[in-house]
Design a protein around this nucleic acid. Structure first.
Lengths: 194, 194
DNA sequence: CCCAAAGGAGACAGATCGGTCTACCTTGCT
DNA sequence: AGCAAGGTAGACCGATCTGTCTCCTTTGGG
């Protein structure tokens, strides 16, 4: 078994549930069943572990969303697929993404509020990367560059809003709500659905 | 000068910039220029201070938004006023709300991800309270109860999305974007302007 | 005038933090 | 067989954390 991967996955679980600063190294070690020396063999410091955790979650989340998009059909069905995926995430219906405690990157950006901090920047990179997925979808259905730009911005905004509403207020149906808003918006923007 | 208020205001600044768990009591004391005994005279523990900080920011933010709403005119102009206020907040143009580092309650909910934690619940209460302001606006322009419910939910979602986009990704124009989405949505919902 | 309340400065305790270290064990390659 | 790499268990270090404590000063009402 890969101890490094084990450490990262376990650290993510704890950071995600309790926050990054609230979780100590020893807690991670105990939960992962790994010796301290092993951790410091793979990572130079706690900060290095944190960066690895952010990168790990980025890949995990992005891959999950891509697979959900690909499973949802052609054209604007992909957009509906995105928000259906959010809906499953919030309701913890997708075993790949359990449990739901909000967006790890929003939380991390809160703990590293300075935009110049490396962790904050990685979080921004993640959001940008997800927004690019939205742009790709819109591009693929023949939207103009301007429609792609505005549409991706809007879908991203709706997604973030839904995540916050679901986590902070417990409004688990925010995913469906955002999905309806998204479809209405795209129709009004003039993007052709198939 | 009221030492208690001074402590709370100063703790908020630090918590808002660096996160709650990352800021120690001694840091708050030094910044506020207050002795440790004074802090523990007013608060039984750090947790009690945190709760006071959350309550303080709730009042501050709510009062600010109400004043901005009242200054923006009648009817749906109030909705435009809300998103203009967000726009000013993000761009740090309103001296009352400087600096901008995202939403304190979203950050706090991230550090206390368990929805049953008192801090998390206070954050949910805050969001609910702000949503009620939206509902009041819609009610005042003669929207039906169903329109009020859906409309307030949607405005809240757009607001949260804009805050996250502005803070995490640095998209400071997300407030204006969300405002345009809001006006389009309300028109499409059938809420009469004026 | 007097005394209690509020505050200042800071030592102190006990716990926990991140990080280093020693000593020993397993594994796989040559 | 032998040896290096990666791992375990946990003592240990200095720093920092929350919270308590003592001693002293200021202040304001009766």
């Amino acid at each position: 078994m890969d101890k490094r991967q084990q450490l990262v996955a376990c650290a993510f679980e704890l950071f995600y549930c309790h926050g990054i600063h609230a979780v100590g190294i020893n807690q991670v070690l105990q939960e992962a069943g790994v010796a301290k020396k092993t951790l410091y063999h793979h990572f130079s410091s706690k900060d290095a572990l944190i960066e690895a955790v952010v990168a790990y979650r980025h890949q995990e989340f992005k891959n999950w969303l891509i697979s959900r998009i690909q499973a949802s059909g052609e054209g604007l069905l992909a957009v509906q697929g995105v928000f259906a995926a959010l809906d499953d995430w919030f309701h913890e219906r997708d075993p790949m993404m359990r449990p739901f405690h909000g967006c790890f990157f929003i939380h991390a950006s809160g703990e590293y509020a300075n935009p110049e901090h490396p962790v904050h920047q990685r979080c921004a990179d993640h959001k940008q990367s997800i927004k690019q997925l939205f742009a790709d979808i819109l591009d693929q259905v023949g939207a103009t560059p301007e429609q792609v730009r505005q549409g991706a911005d809007t879908l991203a905004l709706l997604k973030e809003g839904a995540i916050v509403q679901a986590h902070v207020c417990g409004e688990l149906d925010a995913g469906r709500q955002a999905g309806q808003l998204a479809m209405t918006y795209l129709k009004q923007l003039g993007v052709q659905s198939e």
